[in-house]
Design a protein around this nucleic acid. Structure first.
Lengths: 242, 242
DNA sequence: CGATTACTTGAGGCCTGTCAATGATGGTGG
DNA sequence: CCACCATCATTGACAGGCCTCAAGTAATCG
């Protein structure tokens, strides 16, 4: 069973900007199908070009760069509504990989159609550029966190951001949210060792601030978490959906 | 004396993609003037919107985020050919500041004209998106460096990247390049303390790999520097100029 | 010539990485 | 059904890379 854009469940969320009728009609043509990705699958590979672009419909994944010595830097986490493959679309190849952490359902687009988007639907092109700018903003914030904060603040920031982003796509129920990543993923995102990440999570748990276990995230004290996280106040405005 | 786009000295460099006649004609209209910024001037401020966008014509600057506790993360360094204000253009406000390190000459554009760029010149819109994607690629690489590498590799990476980028805009003469930043700027970019940055630079100098003093960068052994830097081999392809 | 800024160098300590071992869980094959 | 293996989370011990503090030099400026 495939979803069409006119009744896309994501588009109705408050987190995303509105789309006009003609825009929706165009997206119906732009979208070529859907893809189911199993956990552990590599959706896009670093150093390769791709004929397809995606939007995450359901499920979660992560973006990461692999260094030649085997180390790994997690660049970000893919949640529903996220666009995948902008780099492959406008550059020759991807500079990071994207992997499915859970089973994921993805809307698929043809890279070759991207040019018609720019030439015939400037509002959609503008939205795509805004998405790129949002990525840039996030990476700048992540760089500041990894570069300047200590371990407790790093982990707090990550959990705070997970919770906020999951909440924006309606994936928080009764204060709980599914967080299907491994501690190693978080460690690789924050530039910490697995061991130290584990101990920092244990401390947040003991201090009754936040608990993340069995793939489930629970915030016990959002006030203290926000303070520890040095979280920027702005409650992330609406963003475009492709 | 003001430069017009048709004889823009940057456009002729190998580093930048070609521009068609109609594109150049449009840029002439799009460009509203030039601005001279003195060293230390804040060109764009974090948290503020701006009516103007810029392209760096000459001189150098830096982008940085300020944390509430006063710490600072340098997000990147602005060299000739770099576009400034993409975030201000397509989002409500900037999430980082831009400051002039030397005297800078900037091409100025009106933010309100940006929409006509998207609606009437899709090739230019595409280029703008590519620039955003390039920024994203750079920030991803910076995140991996700051998150995963040790101090020696971080500093080596930075010097290697400085040299490569300066070379691409023809600012290297006889193996020397002007690098008008302070050690504190580099430290804040790499997430290192000033003291440790200084000692790491001293070590690279003693080992006859690279010397950076008196605002002048000299590479003595590019082979070893490249190895230390874990530098990605791809010799940065052509990029668009706005 | 005092004040400011930037670079340099040394000493000491802590935050975080590495190493190592254990437990828990789940999948697999005999 | 159980031994076996792989993955992930957890905990302790220890070392080291990097930070902080501090002091000194040099250059620039009003």
């Amino acid at each position: 069973m495939s979803t069409n854009c006119s009744n896309c469940p994501l588009r109705k969320l408050d987190a995303f900007t509105d789309m006009s009728g003609p825009e929706i009609a165009f997206m119906e043509k732009f979208k070529t199908g859907e893809l189911e990705a199993q956990p552990g699958t590599e959706i896009m590979a670093q150093g390769q070009s791709s004929t397809h672009l995606f939007t995450c419909l359901t499920g979660m994944g992560l973006r990461y760069k692999t260094l030649e010595d085997g180390r790994r830097q997690v660049i970000g986490f893919v949640l529903p509504g996220d666009f995948i493959g902008l780099q492959a679309g406008v550059m020759s190849e991807m500079e990071h990989s994207v992997e499915a952490s859970t089973s994921m359902r993805l809307c698929t687009f043809n890279r070759s159609d991207l040019w018609t988007l720019f030439s015939s639907h400037p509002t959609r092109a503008y939205d795509l550029t805004r998405i790129a700018a949002l990525e840039e903003i996030f990476l700048g914030e992540a760089l500041a966190v990894v570069g300047q904060l200590d371990a407790l603040a790093k982990v707090s920031w990550a959990l705070h951001r997970f919770y906020t982003r999951l909440d924006s796509v309606n994936m928080v129920r009764d204060g709980h949210a599914r967080l299907p990543y491994r501690q190693q993923d978080l460690a690789d995102a924050l530039g910490l060792s697995l061991v130290h990440t584990n101990k920092t999570l244990a401390r947040l748990r003991e201090d009754q601030i936040a608990t993340w276990s069995d793939e489930k995230l629970t915030i016990h004290d959002m006030t203290r978490l926000t303070r520890l996280a040095h979280a920027e106040s702005d409650g992330y405005a609406k963003r475009p959906l492709i």
